[in-house]
Amino acid sequence: METARYIASRFAQSLFALLCIITITFFLARLAPGGPFLDEKAVPEHLIEQMNKNYGFDKPLPVQYFLYLGRLVQGDLGPSLGNKGFTVNEVISEGFPVSFLLGISGLVIALLIGVPVGVFAAAKRNTGVDYGLMTLAMLGICLPTFVIAPLLGEFLGLRLGWFDVAMWENSSAWFLGALTLGLYYSAYIARLTRGSMLDVLSQDFIRTARSKGVAPLTILFKHAFRGGITPVVAYLGPALAGLIGGSFVVETVFGLPGLGQHFIKAATNRDYWLINGTVTVFAILILVMNFLVDVIQAWLDPRTQSKD
């Protein structure tokens, strides 16, 4: 019951956060100088007025805001002002799966590499193996994705020919992208895992288990792992938010048709509905992720529920 109430309150909070984010981006976009119909060539005043009228930009801003919310509830993100003839729904449903697949497979790769490395380093703490792995992880953190990405492209792609280095359709370039993102975040996760595993391993119940003669591997995986993994789970939400920004870079390097380039173009050209739509979709993704993280955390460590 307690858990159900906690989950419900978390859900309500997420909805409220989503509304705030949509509101912030709506007004931020509209208060910025410039407009969607300005061009390098001078556009006649009456044409701009006509366009504004067509798209409903002549109404007072609060009215537009509520009209927008009304459409949003029905799942209509509006027309794209920059991509003539396309709706925002179409643009996003084309690009989003690419960015999403990149981000999620990056996260999975990061977990598959980072967690075992962190646990291993913690088990071998203060040995050469530990220092070696942690230095490698630090190196991974310091080499930005946009350095790793071209290098991976050059060596795994061009020199060894294992992967394509560009284009999306039926190509393996996305795997290089996911690997780039995954390697970067695996370094963070490895450090985080090691730190929290060390915290748990220094607690009394572990010492008790040790003195009772429980096998070291059982201690590591059965007693310590559950507590040690909790901060990593908490990190997944922020990591996903970061992965989206990172996927923009990776998409640029490997020429993947994700949302990154669309979004940058939309922001530059004041394509209001596409900007708002993209932010809304990503915000929903992050909020869903944070919500899942909270639920998993409450299950892993019931004490977290009492924090609010």
Partner: peptide
Amino acid sequence: MRVVDILYALPFMIIVIILTTYF
């Protein structure tokens, strides 16, 4: 702190891109 929680859920990169292109 609720405000901070909400801002945490903002896609950072996207906000920075919006701010830099706008201003």
